[in-house]
Design a protein around this nucleic acid. Structure first.
Length: 426
RNA sequence: GGAAGGGUGGCCGAGUGGUUUAAGGCACACGCCUGGAACGCGUGCAUACGUGAAAGCGUAUCGAGGGUUCGAAUCCCUCCUCUUCCGCCA
Protein backbone atom coordinates (compact mmCIF):
# COMPACT_ATOMS: atom_id res chain seq x y z
CA UNK A 1 0.00 0.00 0.00
CA UNK A 2 1.37 3.35 -1.01
CA UNK A 3 1.47 6.45 1.15
CA UNK A 4 -0.87 9.07 -0.30
CA UNK A 5 1.26 11.78 1.29
CA UNK A 6 4.35 10.54 -0.53
CA UNK A 7 2.39 10.60 -3.79
CA UNK A 8 1.27 14.13 -2.98
CA UNK A 9 4.85 15.22 -2.32
CA UNK A 10 6.24 13.62 -5.45
CA UNK A 11 3.60 12.59 -7.99
CA UNK A 12 6.08 12.39 -10.86
CA UNK A 13 8.32 9.88 -9.11
CA UNK A 14 5.26 7.77 -8.42
CA UNK A 15 4.10 7.78 -12.03
CA UNK A 16 7.62 7.07 -13.25
CA UNK A 17 7.74 4.03 -10.96
CA UNK A 18 4.40 2.81 -12.28
CA UNK A 19 5.60 3.25 -15.84
CA UNK A 20 8.48 0.87 -15.12
CA UNK A 21 5.84 -1.70 -14.24
CA UNK A 22 4.11 -0.98 -17.52
CA UNK A 23 1.27 0.88 -15.85
CA UNK A 24 -0.33 4.20 -16.83
CA UNK A 25 0.09 7.29 -14.61
CA UNK A 26 -2.31 7.34 -11.65
CA UNK A 27 -1.08 10.15 -9.40
CA UNK A 28 -3.36 12.76 -10.97
CA UNK A 29 -6.52 10.76 -10.39
CA UNK A 30 -5.50 9.78 -6.84
CA UNK A 31 -4.61 13.33 -5.88
CA UNK A 32 -7.90 14.60 -7.23
CA UNK A 33 -9.78 12.38 -4.81
CA UNK A 34 -7.29 13.24 -2.11
CA UNK A 35 -7.79 16.98 -2.43
CA UNK A 36 -11.55 16.52 -2.56
CA UNK A 37 -11.26 14.53 0.63
CA UNK A 38 -9.16 17.15 2.37
CA UNK A 39 -11.44 20.01 1.37
CA UNK A 40 -14.36 18.10 2.71
CA UNK A 41 -12.54 17.10 5.88
CA UNK A 42 -11.77 20.70 6.68
CA UNK A 43 -15.45 21.67 6.47
CA UNK A 44 -16.48 18.67 8.52
CA UNK A 45 -13.95 19.39 11.23
CA UNK A 46 -15.02 23.03 11.44
CA UNK A 47 -18.59 21.89 11.97
CA UNK A 48 -17.50 19.39 14.60
CA UNK A 49 -15.54 22.09 16.39
CA UNK A 50 -18.62 24.33 16.47
CA UNK A 51 -20.75 21.47 17.77
CA UNK A 52 -18.25 20.66 20.51
CA UNK A 53 -18.08 24.29 21.63
CA UNK A 54 -21.86 24.59 21.68
CA UNK A 55 -22.22 21.37 23.65
CA UNK A 56 -19.88 22.73 26.22
CA UNK A 57 -21.94 25.90 26.48
CA UNK A 58 -25.11 23.89 26.87
CA UNK A 59 -23.54 21.89 29.65
CA UNK A 60 -22.49 25.10 31.33
CA UNK A 61 -25.97 26.61 30.94
CA UNK A 62 -27.63 23.49 32.33
CA UNK A 63 -25.36 23.55 35.30
CA UNK A 64 -26.31 27.15 36.04
CA UNK A 65 -29.98 26.31 35.59
CA UNK A 66 -30.35 28.57 32.57
CA UNK A 67 -32.89 26.40 30.78
CA UNK A 68 -33.88 28.99 28.21
CA UNK A 69 -30.32 29.54 27.01
CA UNK A 70 -29.70 25.82 26.79
CA UNK A 71 -32.82 25.33 24.70
CA UNK A 72 -31.97 28.10 22.27
CA UNK A 73 -28.45 26.70 21.82
CA UNK A 74 -29.92 23.27 21.16
CA UNK A 75 -32.17 24.68 18.49
CA UNK A 76 -29.17 26.20 16.73
CA UNK A 77 -27.50 22.81 16.59
CA UNK A 78 -30.11 21.37 14.25
CA UNK A 79 -28.54 22.25 10.91
CA UNK A 80 -24.98 21.59 12.03
CA UNK A 81 -26.03 18.19 13.24
CA UNK A 82 -27.45 17.29 9.86
CA UNK A 83 -24.34 18.50 8.10
CA UNK A 84 -22.10 16.46 10.39
CA UNK A 85 -24.14 13.31 9.91
CA UNK A 86 -24.02 13.47 6.13
CA UNK A 87 -20.47 14.81 6.17
CA UNK A 88 -19.18 11.84 8.13
CA UNK A 89 -20.72 9.49 5.60
CA UNK A 90 -19.11 11.42 2.74
CA UNK A 91 -15.74 11.32 4.46
CA UNK A 92 -15.95 7.56 4.97
CA UNK A 93 -16.85 7.22 1.34
CA UNK A 94 -13.91 9.27 0.10
CA UNK A 95 -11.52 7.43 2.39
CA UNK A 96 -12.70 4.11 1.08
CA UNK A 97 -12.38 5.34 -2.46
CA UNK A 98 -8.72 6.19 -1.96
CA UNK A 99 -8.01 3.01 0.01
CA UNK A 100 -9.60 0.87 -2.66
CA UNK A 101 -7.64 2.60 -5.39
CA UNK A 102 -4.34 2.30 -3.52
CA UNK A 103 -4.91 -1.33 -2.52
CA UNK A 104 -4.61 -2.58 -6.11
CA UNK A 105 -1.52 -0.57 -7.12
CA UNK A 106 1.71 -2.60 -7.02
CA UNK A 107 4.90 -1.58 -5.27
CA UNK A 108 7.48 0.62 -6.98
CA UNK A 109 10.70 -1.17 -8.02
CA UNK A 110 14.05 -0.08 -6.58
CA UNK A 111 16.39 1.80 -8.89
CA UNK A 112 18.71 -1.15 -9.45
CA UNK A 113 15.92 -3.42 -10.66
CA UNK A 114 16.30 -3.96 -14.42
CA UNK A 115 13.47 -2.82 -16.66
CA UNK A 116 11.80 -5.52 -18.67
CA UNK A 117 8.52 -6.90 -19.92
CA UNK A 118 8.71 -10.52 -18.73
CA UNK A 119 11.10 -13.19 -17.53
CA UNK A 120 13.34 -12.65 -20.56
CA UNK A 121 14.33 -9.33 -18.97
CA UNK A 122 15.69 -10.97 -15.82
CA UNK A 123 19.41 -10.74 -15.18
CA UNK A 124 21.60 -13.62 -14.09
CA UNK A 125 23.59 -12.49 -11.07
CA UNK A 126 25.65 -15.59 -10.37
CA UNK A 127 25.76 -19.32 -10.83
CA UNK A 128 26.83 -22.08 -8.46
CA UNK A 129 27.95 -25.67 -9.10
CA UNK A 130 27.92 -27.63 -12.32
CA UNK A 131 25.43 -29.57 -14.36
CA UNK A 132 25.68 -33.29 -13.77
CA UNK A 133 26.41 -35.34 -16.91
CA UNK A 134 24.46 -38.41 -17.92
CA UNK A 135 25.33 -41.20 -20.37
CA UNK A 136 21.68 -41.37 -21.30
CA UNK A 137 18.87 -38.87 -21.72
CA UNK A 138 18.14 -37.69 -18.21
CA UNK A 139 14.70 -38.72 -16.98
CA UNK A 140 12.13 -36.36 -15.50
CA UNK A 141 11.31 -36.67 -11.82
CA UNK A 142 7.85 -38.17 -12.33
CA UNK A 143 9.26 -40.96 -14.49
CA UNK A 144 11.81 -41.71 -11.81
CA UNK A 145 9.30 -41.54 -8.98
CA UNK A 146 6.70 -43.65 -10.73
CA UNK A 147 9.26 -46.26 -11.81
CA UNK A 148 10.38 -46.51 -8.19
CA UNK A 149 6.75 -47.05 -7.29
CA UNK A 150 6.95 -44.30 -4.70
CA UNK A 151 5.15 -41.48 -6.49
CA UNK A 152 1.50 -41.93 -7.45
CA UNK A 153 -0.48 -39.29 -9.28
CA UNK A 154 -3.38 -41.61 -10.10
CA UNK A 155 -4.03 -42.37 -6.47
CA UNK A 156 -3.95 -38.65 -5.73
CA UNK A 157 -6.37 -37.93 -8.57
CA UNK A 158 -8.76 -40.54 -7.22
CA UNK A 159 -9.00 -39.00 -3.79
CA UNK A 160 -8.40 -35.32 -4.57
CA UNK A 161 -8.16 -34.57 -8.30
CA UNK A 162 -5.51 -33.14 -10.57
CA UNK A 163 -2.40 -31.38 -9.24
CA UNK A 164 -1.98 -33.55 -6.18
CA UNK A 165 0.46 -36.34 -5.42
CA UNK A 166 0.71 -39.35 -3.15
CA UNK A 167 4.18 -40.41 -2.08
CA UNK A 168 5.19 -43.58 -0.32
CA UNK A 169 8.11 -45.07 1.52
CA UNK A 170 11.45 -43.39 1.05
CA UNK A 171 10.01 -40.52 -0.99
CA UNK A 172 7.44 -39.73 1.68
CA UNK A 173 10.27 -39.87 4.13
CA UNK A 174 12.38 -37.58 1.97
CA UNK A 175 9.68 -34.91 2.18
CA UNK A 176 9.98 -35.08 5.95
CA UNK A 177 13.77 -35.29 5.82
CA UNK A 178 14.08 -32.22 3.61
CA UNK A 179 11.85 -30.21 5.90
CA UNK A 180 13.91 -31.17 8.92
CA UNK A 181 17.16 -30.51 7.12
CA UNK A 182 16.07 -27.08 5.92
CA UNK A 183 14.67 -26.04 9.28
CA UNK A 184 17.82 -27.18 11.08
CA UNK A 185 19.92 -25.15 8.67
CA UNK A 186 17.82 -21.99 8.84
CA UNK A 187 17.47 -22.09 12.62
CA UNK A 188 20.93 -23.44 13.41
CA UNK A 189 23.30 -21.60 11.08
CA UNK A 190 21.19 -18.81 9.62
CA UNK A 191 19.61 -17.30 12.72
CA UNK A 192 15.92 -17.80 12.00
CA UNK A 193 13.46 -18.67 14.76
CA UNK A 194 11.17 -21.59 14.04
CA UNK A 195 7.42 -21.02 14.26
CA UNK A 196 4.34 -23.14 14.11
CA UNK A 197 1.55 -21.09 12.59
CA UNK A 198 -2.08 -21.32 11.43
CA UNK A 199 -2.59 -22.66 7.93
CA UNK A 200 -5.96 -20.92 7.73
CA UNK A 201 -6.08 -17.15 8.11
CA UNK A 202 -8.58 -14.30 8.05
CA UNK A 203 -9.20 -11.51 5.54
CA UNK A 204 -7.01 -8.99 7.32
CA UNK A 205 -3.97 -11.26 7.23
CA UNK A 206 -4.35 -11.98 3.55
CA UNK A 207 -4.84 -8.29 2.84
CA UNK A 208 -1.68 -7.51 4.82
CA UNK A 209 0.53 -9.57 2.54
CA UNK A 210 -1.13 -8.33 -0.67
CA UNK A 211 -3.02 -11.46 -1.78
CA UNK A 212 -6.27 -9.55 -1.22
CA UNK A 213 -8.07 -7.82 -2.75
CA UNK A 214 -6.48 -8.45 -6.12
CA UNK A 215 -5.52 -12.12 -6.08
CA UNK A 216 -8.44 -13.84 -4.37
CA UNK A 217 -8.88 -16.26 -7.27
CA UNK A 218 -5.45 -17.76 -6.55
CA UNK A 219 -6.53 -18.79 -3.06
CA UNK A 220 -8.70 -21.48 -1.52
CA UNK A 221 -11.45 -20.26 0.77
CA UNK A 222 -12.91 -22.24 3.65
CA UNK A 223 -16.64 -22.56 4.22
CA UNK A 224 -16.40 -20.33 7.28
CA UNK A 225 -14.80 -17.49 5.32
CA UNK A 226 -11.13 -18.08 6.08
CA UNK A 227 -8.34 -18.65 3.55
CA UNK A 228 -5.85 -21.49 3.21
CA UNK A 229 -2.40 -19.95 3.20
CA UNK A 230 -0.69 -19.91 -0.21
CA UNK A 231 2.62 -19.48 1.64
CA UNK A 232 3.72 -19.18 5.28
CA UNK A 233 4.71 -15.61 4.39
CA UNK A 234 1.11 -14.73 5.22
CA UNK A 235 1.14 -16.20 8.72
CA UNK A 236 4.68 -15.18 9.61
CA UNK A 237 4.60 -11.61 8.30
CA UNK A 238 1.25 -10.91 9.93
CA UNK A 239 2.69 -11.78 13.32
CA UNK A 240 3.70 -8.12 13.55
CA UNK A 241 0.42 -6.75 12.22
CA UNK A 242 -1.00 -3.87 14.26
CA UNK A 243 1.94 -3.86 16.59
CA UNK A 244 4.88 -1.67 17.53
CA UNK A 245 8.15 -3.52 18.07
CA UNK A 246 11.29 -2.22 19.72
CA UNK A 247 14.16 -1.40 17.39
CA UNK A 248 16.49 -3.53 19.48
CA UNK A 249 14.45 -6.57 18.46
CA UNK A 250 15.11 -5.90 14.76
CA UNK A 251 15.83 -7.58 12.52
CA UNK A 252 13.37 -10.33 13.39
CA UNK A 253 14.04 -13.49 11.42
CA UNK A 254 11.17 -15.99 11.33
CA UNK A 255 10.81 -19.35 9.68
CA UNK A 256 8.11 -21.98 9.45
CA UNK A 257 7.54 -25.24 7.64
CA UNK A 258 3.97 -25.32 6.36
CA UNK A 259 1.83 -26.67 3.60
CA UNK A 260 0.89 -24.12 0.94
CA UNK A 261 -2.36 -24.17 -1.01
CA UNK A 262 -2.74 -22.54 -4.40
CA UNK A 263 -5.70 -22.59 -6.73
CA UNK A 264 -3.41 -22.16 -9.78
CA UNK A 265 -6.33 -20.48 -11.50
CA UNK A 266 -4.32 -18.98 -14.35
CA UNK A 267 -2.02 -21.97 -14.83
CA UNK A 268 -4.22 -24.29 -16.88
CA UNK A 269 -2.05 -26.40 -19.15
CA UNK A 270 1.25 -25.40 -17.52
CA UNK A 271 3.35 -28.06 -15.78
CA UNK A 272 0.46 -30.49 -15.83
CA UNK A 273 2.68 -33.52 -15.25
CA UNK A 274 4.61 -34.11 -12.10
CA UNK A 275 5.17 -32.24 -8.88
CA UNK A 276 6.28 -28.85 -10.20
CA UNK A 277 2.90 -27.16 -9.90
CA UNK A 278 0.53 -28.57 -7.31
CA UNK A 279 -2.49 -27.31 -5.40
CA UNK A 280 -0.73 -28.42 -2.23
CA UNK A 281 2.99 -28.36 -1.50
CA UNK A 282 5.16 -27.65 1.48
CA UNK A 283 7.76 -25.04 1.98
CA UNK A 284 10.15 -23.72 4.57
CA UNK A 285 9.54 -20.00 4.50
CA UNK A 286 11.86 -17.21 5.63
CA UNK A 287 10.53 -13.83 6.78
CA UNK A 288 12.56 -10.87 8.02
CA UNK A 289 11.22 -7.78 9.74
CA UNK A 290 13.77 -4.95 9.62
CA UNK A 291 14.33 -1.23 9.85
CA UNK A 292 14.26 0.72 6.57
CA UNK A 293 18.04 1.01 6.72
CA UNK A 294 18.59 -2.74 7.06
CA UNK A 295 16.20 -4.12 4.48
CA UNK A 296 18.27 -3.89 1.31
CA UNK A 297 21.23 -5.69 2.88
CA UNK A 298 18.86 -8.21 4.47
CA UNK A 299 17.69 -9.20 1.00
CA UNK A 300 21.23 -10.26 0.12
CA UNK A 301 21.54 -12.14 3.39
CA UNK A 302 18.21 -13.89 2.97
CA UNK A 303 19.05 -14.93 -0.56
CA UNK A 304 22.30 -16.36 0.76
CA UNK A 305 20.37 -18.33 3.39
CA UNK A 306 18.19 -19.84 0.70
CA UNK A 307 21.24 -20.61 -1.43
CA UNK A 308 22.93 -22.37 1.45
CA UNK A 309 20.32 -25.14 1.22
CA UNK A 310 21.07 -25.80 -2.44
CA UNK A 311 24.80 -25.70 -1.83
CA UNK A 312 24.66 -28.24 0.97
CA UNK A 313 22.57 -30.48 -1.24
CA UNK A 314 25.03 -30.01 -4.09
CA UNK A 315 22.43 -28.74 -6.53
CA UNK A 316 23.48 -26.56 -9.44
CA UNK A 317 21.58 -23.27 -9.59
CA UNK A 318 21.65 -19.68 -10.75
CA UNK A 319 20.50 -16.48 -9.08
CA UNK A 320 18.30 -14.19 -11.13
CA UNK A 321 17.49 -10.59 -10.39
CA UNK A 322 13.93 -10.22 -11.62
CA UNK A 323 13.08 -7.38 -13.96
CA UNK A 324 10.21 -4.97 -13.37
CA UNK A 325 7.83 -6.99 -15.53
CA UNK A 326 8.37 -10.29 -13.70
CA UNK A 327 8.30 -9.11 -10.09
CA UNK A 328 5.46 -9.83 -7.71
CA UNK A 329 2.88 -7.23 -6.72
CA UNK A 330 4.38 -6.20 -3.37
CA UNK A 331 8.06 -6.49 -4.17
CA UNK A 332 10.62 -3.73 -4.58
CA UNK A 333 13.31 -6.20 -5.66
CA UNK A 334 13.32 -9.96 -6.05
CA UNK A 335 15.98 -12.62 -6.46
CA UNK A 336 14.83 -15.95 -7.81
CA UNK A 337 16.91 -19.05 -7.28
CA UNK A 338 16.59 -21.36 -10.24
CA UNK A 339 17.76 -24.92 -9.81
CA UNK A 340 18.99 -27.00 -12.71
CA UNK A 341 16.64 -29.82 -13.70
CA UNK A 342 18.41 -32.26 -16.05
CA UNK A 343 15.17 -34.02 -16.96
CA UNK A 344 13.67 -30.76 -18.17
CA UNK A 345 17.02 -29.51 -19.42
CA UNK A 346 16.16 -26.18 -17.84
CA UNK A 347 16.54 -23.99 -14.77
CA UNK A 348 13.35 -23.83 -12.70
CA UNK A 349 12.41 -21.51 -9.86
CA UNK A 350 12.91 -23.08 -6.45
CA UNK A 351 13.03 -19.96 -4.27
CA UNK A 352 12.01 -16.35 -4.53
CA UNK A 353 13.34 -13.73 -2.12
CA UNK A 354 11.77 -10.29 -2.06
CA UNK A 355 12.11 -7.05 -0.18
CA UNK A 356 8.80 -5.23 0.15
CA UNK A 357 9.93 -2.03 1.86
CA UNK A 358 7.10 -0.59 3.96
CA UNK A 359 4.47 -1.71 1.44
CA UNK A 360 3.11 -4.57 3.56
CA UNK A 361 3.82 -2.75 6.82
CA UNK A 362 1.38 -0.02 5.81
CA UNK A 363 -1.28 -2.56 4.97
CA UNK A 364 -0.68 -4.27 8.32
CA UNK A 365 0.05 -1.16 10.39
CA UNK A 366 3.28 -2.75 11.58
CA UNK A 367 5.67 -0.26 13.12
CA UNK A 368 8.71 -0.02 15.32
CA UNK A 369 9.90 2.43 17.91
CA UNK A 370 13.31 3.83 16.95
CA UNK A 371 15.95 3.43 19.65
CA UNK A 372 16.75 7.13 19.57
CA UNK A 373 14.22 9.78 18.72
CA UNK A 374 10.50 9.79 19.12
CA UNK A 375 7.53 8.48 17.27
CA UNK A 376 7.19 5.32 15.24
CA UNK A 377 8.20 4.22 11.76
CA UNK A 378 6.90 1.47 9.54
CA UNK A 379 9.04 -1.66 9.51
CA UNK A 380 10.29 -3.18 6.29
CA UNK A 381 9.38 -6.76 5.43
CA UNK A 382 11.10 -9.45 3.40
CA UNK A 383 10.10 -12.97 2.49
CA UNK A 384 11.75 -15.84 0.74
CA UNK A 385 11.56 -19.58 0.31
CA UNK A 386 14.18 -21.54 2.09
CA UNK A 387 13.16 -23.72 0.12
CA UNK A 388 10.11 -25.15 -1.60
CA UNK A 389 10.26 -28.77 -0.44
CA UNK A 390 8.46 -30.40 -3.37
CA UNK A 391 10.63 -28.75 -5.98
CA UNK A 392 13.74 -29.57 -3.99
CA UNK A 393 12.74 -33.21 -4.14
CA UNK A 394 12.20 -32.89 -7.88
CA UNK A 395 15.71 -31.45 -8.19
CA UNK A 396 17.25 -34.25 -6.14
CA UNK A 397 15.50 -36.97 -8.13
CA UNK A 398 16.62 -35.51 -11.44
CA UNK A 399 20.16 -34.50 -10.47
CA UNK A 400 21.00 -37.60 -8.44
CA UNK A 401 19.38 -40.17 -10.72
CA UNK A 402 21.41 -43.23 -11.68
CA UNK A 403 21.40 -45.29 -14.86
CA UNK A 404 19.79 -48.24 -13.04
CA UNK A 405 16.81 -46.14 -12.00
CA UNK A 406 17.87 -45.64 -8.41
CA UNK A 407 18.53 -42.24 -6.87
CA UNK A 408 21.55 -41.40 -4.74
CA UNK A 409 20.69 -39.49 -1.58
CA UNK A 410 22.78 -36.31 -1.16
CA UNK A 411 25.19 -36.72 1.72
CA UNK A 412 23.78 -33.87 3.75
CA UNK A 413 20.40 -35.53 3.75
CA UNK A 414 21.49 -39.02 4.78
CA UNK A 415 21.34 -38.43 8.53
CA UNK A 416 17.69 -37.50 8.03
CA UNK A 417 17.03 -40.62 5.95
CA UNK A 418 18.09 -43.12 8.56
CA UNK A 419 21.57 -43.29 7.09
CA UNK A 420 20.43 -44.58 3.70
CA UNK A 421 22.56 -43.54 0.72
CA UNK A 422 20.24 -44.57 -2.09
CA UNK A 423 16.58 -44.80 -2.97
CA UNK A 424 15.80 -48.03 -4.78
CA UNK A 425 12.76 -49.77 -6.12
CA UNK A 426 11.28 -51.74 -3.20
C1' G B 1 -22.79 -25.72 21.33
C1' G B 2 -24.84 -23.54 26.42
C1' A B 3 -24.09 -19.94 30.56
C1' A B 4 -21.57 -15.87 32.84
C1' G B 5 -17.99 -12.01 32.93
C1' G B 6 -14.40 -8.91 30.44
C1' G B 7 -11.88 -5.75 26.18
C1' U B 8 -9.71 1.82 28.48
C1' G B 9 -2.57 4.67 26.38
C1' G B 10 3.91 0.76 25.72
C1' C B 11 1.93 -2.00 30.39
C1' C B 12 -1.37 -2.10 34.91
C1' G B 13 -5.70 0.32 36.20
C1' A B 14 -9.86 4.20 37.84
C1' G B 15 -13.89 6.03 35.45
C1' U B 16 -22.46 4.58 35.04
C1' G B 17 -24.54 11.27 30.24
C1' G B 18 -21.59 17.51 30.77
C1' U B 19 -14.05 21.07 33.68
C1' U B 20 -12.18 13.54 31.51
C1' U B 21 -8.72 18.30 28.27
C1' A B 22 -9.04 9.79 29.99
C1' A B 23 -7.40 10.03 37.27
C1' G B 24 -3.48 7.24 39.49
C1' G B 25 0.57 3.88 39.05
C1' C B 26 4.54 1.23 36.27
C1' A B 27 7.93 1.65 32.40
C1' C B 28 10.64 5.24 29.54
C1' A B 29 13.30 10.23 28.67
C1' C B 30 15.49 14.59 30.73
C1' G B 31 16.88 17.52 35.02
C1' C B 32 18.03 18.01 40.40
C1' C B 33 20.36 15.13 44.21
C1' U B 34 25.22 11.61 44.35
C1' G B 35 32.21 10.32 44.04
C1' G B 36 29.02 7.00 40.91
C1' A B 37 24.40 4.63 41.40
C1' A B 38 19.81 3.24 43.92
C1' C B 39 16.12 5.93 46.61
C1' G B 40 13.76 10.61 46.57
C1' C B 41 12.08 15.19 44.06
C1' G B 42 10.70 17.87 39.50
C1' U B 43 9.37 17.95 34.29
C1' G B 44 7.90 15.38 30.05
C1' C B 45 5.69 11.16 27.74
C1' A B 46 -0.62 7.91 23.00
C1' U B 47 -1.89 7.44 17.78
C1' A B 48 -3.85 9.02 13.13
C1' C B 49 -5.58 12.76 9.96
C1' G B 50 -6.07 17.99 8.60
C1' U B 51 -3.72 22.86 8.86
C1' G B 52 0.84 25.57 9.46
C1' A B 53 7.72 27.44 7.85
C1' A B 54 7.46 26.28 12.98
C1' A B 55 5.41 26.74 17.73
C1' G B 56 0.78 25.64 17.72
C1' C B 57 -4.39 24.93 16.49
C1' G B 58 -8.46 21.66 15.01
C1' U B 59 -10.77 16.77 14.43
C1' A B 60 -11.14 11.67 15.40
C1' U B 61 -9.82 7.43 18.37
C1' C B 62 -11.52 3.92 25.26
C1' G B 63 -12.20 -3.97 20.75
C1' A B 64 -15.09 -2.87 15.58
C1' G B 65 -19.44 -0.92 13.32
C1' G B 66 -24.24 1.30 13.81
C1' G B 67 -27.96 3.99 16.99
C1' U B 68 -30.07 7.46 20.99
C1' U B 69 -28.57 12.68 22.56
C1' C B 70 -27.19 19.51 22.01
C1' G B 71 -23.25 16.24 24.18
C1' A B 72 -21.31 9.04 24.84
C1' A B 73 -15.47 5.57 27.54
C1' U B 74 -20.40 5.76 30.09
C1' C B 75 -27.09 4.20 27.50
C1' C B 76 -29.13 0.76 23.25
C1' C B 77 -28.23 -2.81 18.93
C1' U B 78 -25.00 -5.99 15.90
C1' C B 79 -20.36 -8.20 15.30
C1' C B 80 -15.24 -9.58 16.74
C1' U B 81 -12.24 -11.26 20.58
C1' C B 82 -10.51 -12.98 25.48
C1' U B 83 -11.42 -15.41 30.31
C1' U B 84 -14.16 -18.85 33.49
C1' C B 85 -17.71 -22.88 34.08
C1' C B 86 -20.61 -26.82 31.58
C1' G B 87 -21.08 -30.10 27.20
C1' C B 88 -18.44 -32.35 23.09
C1' C B 89 -13.68 -33.62 21.24
C1' A B 90 -7.71 -35.03 18.75
Amino acid sequence: MHDIKAIRDNPDAFDTGLARRGLPPMAGELLKIDSERRDHLQKLQDAQARRNAASKDIGEAMKQGDKARAESLKAEMGTIKDFIASGEAVERDLNQKIEAALAVIPNIPLDDVPDGKDETGNIEVRRWGERPRFEYEARQHFDIGEWLGLMDFEAAAKIAGARFVVMRGQLARMERALAQFMLDLQTGSNGYTEHYVPFMVNDAAVFGTNQLPKFAEDLFRTTDGRWLIPTAEVSLTNLVRESIVEEKNLPMRLTAYTPCFRAEAGAAGRDTRGMIRQHQFSKVELVSITTPEQSREELERMTGCAESVLQKLGLHYRVMRLCTGDMGFGSRMTYDLEVWLPGQNAFREISSCSVCGDFQARRMDARYKPADGKGTRFVHTLNGSGLAVGRTMVAILENYQNADGSVTIPEALRPYMGGADKITRP
